[in-house]
Computed example of a mutant assay.
Amino acid sequence: MATAETAPSPTASAPRPTVPAQPRSPDAPPPAATLIGSVQRAMRLLETVAGHAYGAPAKQLARETGLALPTAYHLLRTLVHEGYLRRDKGLFFLGEAAERLSAAGAQQKRRSTLVDAFARWRDAIGAPLYYAVYREGEITVLCVSDSPGAPAVEEWADFRETGHAHALGQCLLSQLDERARRDHLDRYPVQPLTPYTVRDNHSLLRRLERTRRTDLVVERQEYAVGTVCAAIPITVGSTAATLAISLPAHQADRLLPAAQRLQAEAGALLGSLALSISI
C-alpha cells in the first residue's frame, strides 16, 4: 500500500509519449507559408492571356486577374522576356515557351490515351500488345503493353536492327516498296538469331514479295526461341505501322485466333494510333 509520502499526486500528469512527425506526401499541397505569391500571380496572368485568342492589353489583364497595374506590368515584362508571352501593338499573346509547354502536354495526353487503349485490348485478348511504325528509315516501337500474366518478349537484340526476325519488322518491311526494303537491309542485313531465323537477305526479300500489304504476318521462334508472334498491318496516313501480339510457343494454337480478333476490331484503336504518330 502506498503511503502519503510515496503515493502519486492526483493532480500530477503522466508524461506524454513523443509522436514522431509524419512525412508529408509529395502529392499533398504545400503549406500556405511556402507558396510563392509572384509565381501564383504570373500563372494567373498566363491563364488569362490564354483565354484571349486575339490578345489583351495590360490594363484588361490586370483587371481580370485582380492585380495592381504596376504589379501586372512588372510580371508581364518578365514573362515577355522569358518567352512565355509576346507583345504586339500593346496586346499580349502566348509566346513560344508557353506554346512548347502546351505541345508537350498534348503529347503526354496522346500517349496516355494510347496506353489506356492498349491496356484494355491486352486484357481482352490475353496477350501483350506492341505498336510500331517505320519512320525515317527506322523501326520504332511506340508502345508495349504487357502485364505479369501476359509478359512481353524481352528485347535481347535491338528491334531496330533485327526487323528480319520478328513479326513487327517483317510486317513493316512488307509495307515498303522494294527500294526502301533493300535500303533497310543494306543497313541492317539478315543475321541468324535462332535456328528458325530466315537465312539471308534474298530469302527474306522473296518472303516479303509474297506478302500482301494487308496480310497478317506470323513469326514462329525466329526472334526468340520459345516465343511466337503475329503482326497486322495498320494504315495510319502514309506511315507504315503495325500492331502485334506475342505468346509462349506452347500456346501457339491461340496465336492466330487472337491476332484475327485484333485485326477484325482494330478499327476501334485507329483514332488513338493516328494521334500517336507524332509521339
Rank of each mutant, 00 (worst) to 15 (best):
A4V: 13
A4S: 13
E5S: 14
S9K: 05
P10F: 04
P10G: 02
R16D: 09
P17R: 14
V19P: 00
A21N: 02
A21K: 05
A21M: 07
A21V: 08
P23S: 10
S25G: 03
D27E: 12
D27N: 09
P30Y: 12
A32S: 06
A33M: 04
L35S: 05
G37I: 05
G37A: 13
S38G: 10
V39Q: 12
M43P: 00
R44T: 11
H52G: 02
Y54H: 15
G55V: 11
P57C: 09
T65I: 01
G66F: 08
L69Y: 10
L76C: 03
R77M: 12
L79T: 03
L79N: 06
H81D: 14
G83A: 09
R87Q: 15
D88V: 13
A97D: 07
A98H: 03
G105A: 15
Q107T: 02
Q107V: 00
Q107M: 06
Q108Y: 07
R110K: 10
R110F: 01
V115H: 12
D123Q: 12
A124G: 12
A132S: 14
Y134G: 01
E136H: 14
E138C: 07
V141S: 07
V144P: 06
S145Y: 00
S147C: 03
E155C: 07
E155A: 15
A157E: 10
D158Q: 11
F159I: 12
R160V: 06
A165M: 05
L168R: 00
G169P: 01
G169Y: 00
L172W: 05
D183G: 08
L185P: 00
R187E: 12
P192C: 02
P192T: 07
L193N: 08
V198A: 07
D200Q: 06
S203W: 08
R206V: 08
L208F: 01
E209Y: 07
R210I: 02
E219N: 07
A224L: 15
P233V: 04
V236C: 11
S238I: 12
S238D: 15
A244P: 00
I245W: 01
I245V: 13
Q251M: 12
A252G: 05
R254A: 13
P257I: 03
P257Q: 04
R261V: 11
A264F: 06
A268W: 03
L273F: 07
L275T: 02
I277Q: 11
I277S: 02
S278I: 09
I279A: 14
